[in-house]
Nucleic acid binder design. Structure first.
Lengths: 211, 211
DNA sequence: CATAAATAACTAACCAGTCAGTTAGTTAAT
DNA sequence: ATTAACTAACTGACTGGTTAGTTATTTATG
């Protein structure tokens, strides 16, 4: 195999080890994933992996940081735009299924859930840098829509979480039943229906009891 | 320690080993949980655990079956009653937070997710015996409410899943951030708001586009 | 009733295999 | 020729499962 002599080649190699480890951690879990298998999947020897990462824990930590970092600018940009609530819900319904179906999110979710007891600091970091930002962006968007008189809601933070709740649901369903043909349902259609329901639920034409 | 001589005492001992294993599997994951730790947690030696369970895999299998078995009659009874949709949503909002906060469900969920790659048959079994029944019960209930003209919906199966989606979301949140004080929010209030939104979303007074 | 025998429940110690991390040697690239 | 990237082999710690021995409890006996 070609050696990674340049900085660019080293970065590529590092990333390919990270991606190999994601696959192994996803299939086996952190503890049962073997460094030798990760190395083979990346086309290297086990000892070569240790040239790039101090140990298994460091590999895991850097994997989670690598995966969660690039998504945030897009989320901010999405919710920073001046869309109507209805338009935003519809575009959301187009975008979110792609995260479930075409991104490493379900894999990452499984790896994190499985290992949450062993790395509480990492979990907290992930919440602060990713999840809280997403929830805050949705909440801020909801508050603006409400201020425009476009919607009526009870609690912007909890509503943001409810709007997002099909994401973890679908992520977990995928983790548990990815290879179970009978378990499959139309994820895109579900998000469309969810968007419709949220539009109706938050329509300002009715009486919402704040309890 | 007192020996389990009678059948009843043996059942108790077996159950206490199962519960000890749930705690260890929850904290450490299946692979990293040690049989010696499980035994100590149950107040026994490791070899004694092997008097009750063939091996670690058998312990895991029997744990999952034990935990998921008793809940189903209650669900059937809940949705078999002749409640109005609104009444059912409100009672649902009372009941579901207790599952998140006071039952082993989040622990079980984490253990299953972490180990889903290793036991696909068990995952499928759990879906068939538990999840599909819950979803089907909600769906049947929705169809009846719709037939009474009480609600208007697009797809009963997907709507049932959307009604249930705060459950996995809250379960996941609890798994990841149980000990993270800043992450906490009012679970009961969220379910109440969700019930209100679903009542409004499914109210038959508007126009739902079936796409 | 007291005591011995029987036995199932239990355990400390053992064993073979596994694996993360390391080392001494190899090799591709400059 | 040099050297950094890489690897096969090694090492020590660990663990699931097993075994030989111990012991608590029940049953049998005088």
């Amino acid at each position: 195999m070609q050696r990674a002599r340049t900085d660019e080649a080293k970065d590529e190699r590092r990333l390919s080890i990270l991606m190999a480890s994601l696959d192994e951690f996803y299939e086996k879990g952190f503890a049962a994933a073997r460094m030798d298998d990760i190395a083979r999947r990346a086309g290297l020897s086990k000892a070569a992996v240790y040239l790039y990462f101090k140990n298994k824990d460091a590999l895991f930590t850097e994997l989670l940081r690598e995966i969660s970092s690039p998504k945030l600018d897009y989320i901010d940009a999405f919710f920073g735009r001046d869309l109507s609530f209805e338009e935003a819900m519809n575009q959301f319904a187009e975008f979110l299924p792609t995260v479930i179906l075409n991104s490493p999110m379900p894999k990452m979710l499984k790896v994190m859930i499985g290992e949450s007891g062993g790395h509480p600091k990492l979990m907290r970091e992930f919440r602060e840098t990713v999840l809280d930002r997403v929830i805050c962006a949705v909440r801020t968007f909801l508050e603006r829509a409400e201020a425009r008189g476009e919607i009526q809601l009870i609690d912007a933070d909890l509503t943001a979480r409810l709007i997002l709740s099909p994401m973890p649901m679908n992520g977990m369903w995928r983790i548990l039943f990815e290879s179970d043909a009978e378990a499959q349902f139309d994820v895109s259609r579900m998000f469309k229906i969810h968007a419709l329901y949220m539009i109706r639920a938050l329509s300002p034409s009715g009486d919402l009891h704040a309890s």
